[in-house]
Amino acid sequence: MTDSLKLSVDRRDGVAVLYTDGYINNQGGEEIAKVAYELLDEGYRNLLLNLSGTKIVNSIGISILIEIIEKMIDIKGKLAFCNLTPTIDKTFHIMGLAQYTSIFPSEDEAAEHLVD
């Protein structure tokens, strides 16, 4: 069995950063969605997913991330990703996610984009 995804949140002025640690499968994706929607309820409209602790994802987990992207579009919020492995970055591009969200190499660049 794989360890479940660990998630931590850094609430900053204007942006909340979610740090993932582990496999983003269906359970991991659901956990991210739960926390993301709680942050929206708290009033955050800019979310950053830092995937530096995630080396593998699957398409079920990414499908749940697409639900979050849809939600962010609906509320006119911003969602960005940073610190993706080259393979996860390539997978996001294969799926076309890069058209609807922003992907940055580093957290600093992503945060700067979100709070602009």
């Binding site: 398409s59 079920i60 990414i62 499908s63 749940i64 697409i66 639900e67 992207i69 849809e70 579009i73 393979t87 390539k90 997978t91 294969i94 799926m95 076309g96 996610l97 058209q99 609807y100």
Partner: peptide, 21 residues
């Protein structure tokens, strides 16, 4: 992706990912 964003089903990517990688 454009269709999936509008759809209730976001799944069905497996083969496309395999072929891309």
């Amino acid at each position: 992706i454009e269709q999936k964003l509008k759809s209730s089903s976001k799944r069905g990517w497996g083969l496309q990912i395999i072929e891309g990688l």
